[in-house]
Simulated assay, not measured.
Amino acid sequence: MGFLWSLIVGGVIGAIAGAITNKGGSMGIIANVVAGLIGSSIGQALLGDWGPNLAGMAVIPSIIGAVILVAVVSFFFGRKDA
């Protein structure tokens, strides 16, 4: 059950990051989960483990880390509009 809870929280964090960066429409559910989980690791490594915790993830640093991840990935792999 803990693994499922982590996926759900990761998906929500990824969706919030997508909404903040205006990239949420182009990201699917799996991309939201991956962005949330990896962003959580990045955010907690950079900012520490403070604020409210859900499923072992510090929510605020996780969202900040996911925003950074989504912004960097979309910068390098985003569509080039002519």
Rank of each mutant, 00 (worst) to 15 (best):
K23S: 13
N32H: 11
V59G: 01
V73A: 05
K80S: 11
I30L: 11
M57D: 01
W50R: 02
I20N: 03
M1K: 07
W50T: 11
I60H: 00
G11V: 02
G14W: 11
L54P: 00
L47P: 04
G43D: 08
I64V: 15
I64Q: 05
G65F: 13
G48M: 02
I38K: 05
S40P: 04
A66D: 08
G2W: 07
D81I: 15
A55E: 03
V34G: 02
A19I: 15
S41E: 14
V33I: 15
I16K: 05
I68N: 00
G2T: 09
M1Q: 06
V73Y: 11
L54I: 15
G11A: 02
A15V: 12
S62F: 12
L46W: 11
A19Y: 11
F3M: 10
N32L: 07
L4K: 00
G36R: 05
I64L: 14
I38W: 13
A71F: 13
V33M: 12
D81H: 10
F75G: 04
W50N: 08
I63D: 04
G14R: 03
V70P: 01
L46K: 03
V33S: 04
G25C: 04
G14A: 10
I16E: 06
G18W: 08
L69Q: 00
S41C: 13
S74F: 14
A71I: 08
V70R: 00
G78N: 01
R79S: 12
G51R: 03
S41R: 06
I8T: 12
G39S: 04
L69A: 06
V33W: 10
L47H: 05
A31N: 06
G28M: 13
N53Y: 07
S41G: 14
V73E: 06
A55H: 05
G48R: 01
I42N: 01
G25K: 05
Q44K: 07
K80V: 15
A19G: 12
I63M: 03
F76M: 05
G36S: 06
I16Y: 09
V72T: 08
V73Q: 03
A55I: 08
I63N: 04
K23L: 14
K23Y: 15
G39F: 10
V72G: 02
S26F: 13
F77E: 12
S6K: 10
S40I: 13
V59F: 10
A58H: 01
G25R: 03
I8N: 00
G78I: 05
G48F: 02
K23A: 14
M27S: 10
V67I: 15
I16M: 11
A45V: 07
V72L: 15
A35I: 14
L4W: 07
A71T: 14
A15E: 12
A71K: 05
Q44T: 13
G24W: 07
G48S: 03
G51V: 07
P61G: 01
G24A: 09
